[in-house]
Amino acid sequence: MIDAIFGNIIWMLLITIGGALISLGVHFVPVGGAPAAMAQATGVGTGTVQLAAGAGLTGLVSAGAMMNLTDNLLLILASGAVGAMIMISVTMIVGTWTYVYAVGCVPASAKVKVDPITKYRQDLYVSQGTEGHGIPTVSFVSGVIGAALGGIGGSLVYYSLIEVGMSVGLQGSGVTNAVTGNTLVGVAAIFAIGIFLVNAVIPSYNIGGTIEGFHDPKFKKWPKAVISSLVATLLCAVVAVIAIAQLGGI
């Protein structure tokens, strides 16, 4: 057990960094929560965990697919990031269509007077009694950045856990076409999901449920969540590494 910890310090550090990246990434994602579902706040109308997990888990799948082809860490991280970015972009663009063509409101941010990217006025278009609505350009760009960070973080966690398992002699990627039966992939994936959810919930408590993106004043609170995530993920990483190292013995 002690050997497992000292032999895998580098992977534990990478898992911890991955957790911190996920935590930072969540701050970029425009989460509107229940108010946004009624077009009364800017962002996508669902909770942080659902959005971050949706994007992050897609990132895990695309990273896992890439791991069948190569063991180049950079390519795997890029694949995870692109998967997560595609997922969140699709969510946001379809959400925008719904807000514009079905709800009938213009995308507008209530937190800034002009959109920092397009330089369009925002405050004139915010309906009375709302905190903005839809997904303006700056929030969209911010969301894509956040998904990239989350995807990189998730893939880093998954890759590290697979490497820990391979160091005790388990098979990392599917040699056969069987869908089930690969114990290491199953354990690493479910641990990565567990660590991902812990790191998606911690920042969501930090931002109080809603955020518009990197232009939101709440974004400045990110160091608190990242520090919390570093500590929490380190704890999870130690526990997960030991559990995976024990797989070698069965």
Binding site: G33, G47, T48, V201
Partner: peptide, 11 residues
């Protein structure tokens, strides 16, 4: 919690 109840169940 400031965010939805489901978050704590997932946590």
């Amino acid at each position: 919690l400031g965010t939805g109840v489901p978050s704590i169940g997932m946590l």
